[in-house]
């Protein structure tokens, strides 16, 4: 599996993402700068967490207009897998690869803790290797309150596009949505951070199955 991790000014989970991908796949990903306009030939593009451009205007709004984004969209349209975590999820909604938007957490707090999750669709390229339907992952965000209109939410649920839900209300997200895929199941955006819990040195590794799923699906 060949992967690329895109770094924006203010990304802060890009190294964790690169380490997680390398630990699971055995191959270090390409590190791509936001100002580049071309991507190498890859099977997976990872958009990491952080605070790109200081979250100015809206989370992900500035990064969405970066030079690299047209290449990301073009690759996604070809079916290249795209994983957006936290700020990467916000970015995916800003560039229109995923529907809806991430708003300020309902209680206005920055939430930084481990949260219970359910794997709502265990049959995606990102979720097949989860051994159980319930798991947990860390979240660390101020703007993770997923919003979409009811018709869009119905379409996501009916189409199996809800990959992860919070096990309990966390941030005000509509229908407790924590992560969604596009209709084709090739693009995943999620607020929880699987890349932070992959290294065995840090204890349990509930983030690992996500990367193992990608490895199995892509080869």
């Amino acid at each position: 599996m060949r992967a690329a991790v895109v770094t924006f000014p203010g990304s802060n989970c890009d190294r964790d993402m690169a380490v997680a991908i390398e630990q699971v796949t055995g191959t270090p990903p390409h590190r791509i700068w936001h100002g580049d306009s071309e991507l190498p030939d890859v099977d997976l593009i990872a958009l990491p967490g952080g605070f790109s451009y200081g979250d100015y205007l809206r989370c992900g709004a500035m990064a969405a207009r970066s030079a690299i984004i047209p290449a990301v969209i073009k690759a996604a349209e070809r079916g290249v897998r795209v994983l957006g975590v936290c700020n990467g999820f916000q970015l995916l909604t800003e560039i229109g690869l995923l529907p809806g938007a991430l708003m300020r957490n309902i209680d206005l707090n920055f939430i930084c803790r481990n949260v219970a999750l359910t794997v709502d669709n265990p049959d995606t390229a990102f979720t097949r290797k989860f051994a159980t339907r319930t798991t947990w992952l860390p979240v660390a965000h101020h703007d993770g309150n997923y919003y979409a209109d009811d018709a869009t939410l119905d379409r996501l649920e009916d189409g199996g596009c809800v990959a992860f839900r919070y096990g309990e209300p966390v941030n005000g997200s509509a229908r407790n949505i924590a992560g969604i895929t596009n209709a084709a199941g090739t693009v995943l955006g999620m607020m929880p951070h699987p890349e932070r819990v992959v290294d065995p040195a840090l204890g349990p590794n509930p983030g690992r199955p996500l990367f193992e799923s990608l490895l199995e699906s892509i080869g």
Binding site: R65, E94, A101, M103, Y147, A148
Partner: peptide, 9 residues
Amino acid sequence: EKLLANTVI
């Protein structure tokens, strides 16, 4: 439409 507002919300 292109930057200042996110017309989803």
